[in-house]
């Protein structure tokens, strides 16, 4: 039996179907989770997909944080459940205080949508273990509020503890502090990033298949754990 990976759909989620496809291509079972669910349906990991949950009202991710399903995700994540937040999902994880920092409007004030080079700076998370250290990935980035910010002490701590998971290469698309594209929690099980690995899982439909490694990583982690 393969692993069950839940994909949350909020009102306004856009990339839940691509995330489910990525999970299936990696060989796991994609389990749809609805924002109103107060149950995680025995999933072994959760993906929070991109989009504009609740219309991005108030702040990106601020309303989604209080959805019934998120209360379960937050408590399960504190207990070690692997969680990947992509784009809006990253914003939800920051608003939920599962990840430090916040995402603000892009410094250049424009929505950015392009193929972006990234470097994997930590392969010690369940979501990145399939990559070689320092691997360079080309995957789409598309956001209007993707500028990662945190106070200097937090940024220094993230760097010192190896919790910067991804860094932008060859151009920072949104003014993120220290070119940070993704970070993780203290244990590495919760990872958030602005670029979209689920859009780069098949050369037919994306710029590369470089994003697939995040989904195969968590599958090997879960199969190893089981």
């Amino acid at each position: 039996m393969t692993a069950r990976i839940g994909i949350v759909t909020f009102p306004g989620s856009l990339d839940d179907r691509d995330a489910a496809r990525a999970v299936r291509l990696a060989g796991a079972q994609a389990v749809p989770l609805w924002h109103g669910d107060a149950d995680l349906h025995r999933v072994d990991a959760v993906v929070l997909p991109g989009g504009f949950s609740y219309g991005d009202y108030l702040r990106c991710g601020a309303i989604a944080r209080f959805a019934p399903v998120m209360e379960r995700v937050v408590s399960a994540a504190r207990g070690g459940l692997p969680v990947l937040g992509i784009c809006n999902g990253f914003q939800v994880l920051c608003e939920s205080h599962l990840l430090p920092g916040a995402l603000i409007r892009n410094a250049q004030r424009r929505f950015v949508c392009r193929d972006q080079w990234l470097r994997v700076d930590s392969v010690r998370t369940p979501w990145t273990s399939a990559y070689g250290a320092g691997a360079e990935l080309r995957i789409p980035v598309k956001n209007g509020e993707g500028g990662y910010v945190a106070d200097r002490r937090t940024l220094d701590a993230l760097e010192a503890e190896g919790r910067v998971v991804f860094r932008y290469l060859r151009g920072n698309p949104n003014g993120s502090a220290r070119d940070i594209a993704g970070v993780c929690n203290e244990t590495g099980t919760v990872v958030g990033l602005m670029p979209h690995p689920e859009h780069a899982v098949d050369p037919l439909t994306g710029p590369s298949a470089d994003g697939l490694g995040m989904f195969t990583s968590v599958l090997s982690h879960l199969v190893g754990v089981a």
């Binding site: 603000i104 409007r105 892009n106 410094a107 250049q108 004030r109 500028g147 910010v149 106070d151 003014g175």
Partner: peptide
Amino acid sequence: LKPEILDPQGQ
């Protein structure tokens, strides 16, 4: 926004 956070809309 805190003073140290860039405010692109204000800019």
